[in-house]
Nucleic acid binder design. Structure first.
Lengths: 208, 208
DNA sequence: GAGAATATGAACAGGATACTCACATTCATT
DNA sequence: AATGAATGTGAGTATCCTGTTCATATTCTC
């Protein structure tokens, strides 16, 4: 759906021009995400990715100058996706519970294809070469959306940013854990996650 | 403090008898935890561990038959520690807020030495060879304590176990994330985490 | 059918890894 | 002080993998 947007020239060795090569590049990125999620950064090798993509190594290096460029492409795609999910959930003003439900549904959707990709991208995969800026900017925008949501449902001005961090990392923790047990689709889990978010943002916090 | 208990014969090649060798083994495990936490499973090599421990490779292999036995020793030690923390926090009956505070303090303490060890142990390090049982048993007891705590503060019988899972993974998520930013000690974070736990367990849940 | 785009995969060079072993050092015991 | 056991050493081995290239083959566009 959102894959419609043409890649604005990531760090590539050659731009794919024909439909064939576009499909190849897409297959490589997709396979890369799969390998990364399944085997982790330790098991992420260019040869493996090429094989998983049903493509020869040579083809991979025709478009990606090196391993890092490939990870960056994967990272970019995934982060764009996640970002759009949060953006949508916190778009218009809606009741807290509805926001929570949409957020949970969206986040789970974003993780159900490559369950542990997100964590691997954040924890294991190196963020060096030039992607520093992109990475930081993602984190910033990510937190930004959460902060806005927190501010909307929580009157108290203090600690808004900390709350956003706590909220986002809690959600990620739950989803990551559920992904490991193949429990992402369990409805009672989704319900409880919604509950957690609502309860925290409702915040009948009593005394400090 | 709790290191007093003699190791009940983990999978070792030779039992250390003299004080010297006991210290060596301890240094190896400690260095192993450090390397694992710092470099992840990908960077965890026996040579690196030996060097970090200030000990020769030969000494390492004198006591640990292979790499996996070493990880298992590390895992065992860390899990025992974490388990004791939860046990203590949920020991006697105490008000919800106090329980939350103690739990948070304990969990943060357990993570502040080797911030990402827990996650690496859970996600990256292989759990094969014979440790399957030990691993599962840890998870079980881990969840058990959380379930008991949830049951204590939440009247509703339904979903108790799911709630325990959600709670534990949320807490881990927050702590893991904070560890990555060196924010484990930040008091406002601890406060918010306590808030999250209390709010969720208070559960002014409204309609489903 | 010409030339460009695309795809192939065997081969290479380099590095890292887990683990051994023959030997040196230090301990406990008499 | 002496002896054997416990402990420590680290250069070396054998193996496996990795990222990457390149000469060649196939397929597309016009």
């Amino acid at each position: 759906m959102s894959t419609r947007i043409a890649k604005p020239a990531a760090r590539m060795r050659k731009q794919p021009r024909q439909a064939r090569s576009i499909a190849t590049v897409e297959a490589i990125i997709e396979a890369g995400a799969h390998v990364l999620s399944e085997l982790g950064w330790a098991g992420f090798s260019t040869n493996k990715v090429a094989e998983a993509a049903g493509v020869s190594i040579g083809s991979l290096y025709q478009y990606f100058p090196d391993k890092l460029a490939l990870v960056e492409a994967i990272r970019r795609r995934h982060f764009d996706h996640v970002l759009s999910v949060i953006r949508e959930a916190s778009a218009e003003e809606k009741p807290l519970r509805q926001f929570a439900r949409e957020l949970v549904r969206g986040m789970i959707g974003a993780h159900s294809i490559h369950p542990t990709l997100h964590q691997v991208l954040l924890d294991e995969a190196p963020g060096d070469r030039g992607s520093r800026a992109a990475h930081a900017s993602f984190q910033a925008r990510y937190l930004e959306h959460y902060t806005a949501a927190v501010a909307q449902y929580r009157k108290r001005r203090k600690d808004t940013e900390t709350m956003a961090r706590v909220l986002s990392s809690a959600i990620e923790g739950v989803i990551h854990n559920a992904a490991r047990r193949n429990m992402l689709e369990a409805p009672e889990l989704q319900k409880q996650l919604v509950e957690l978010i609502s309860a925290y943002l409702s915040g009948q916090g009593v005394r400090a």
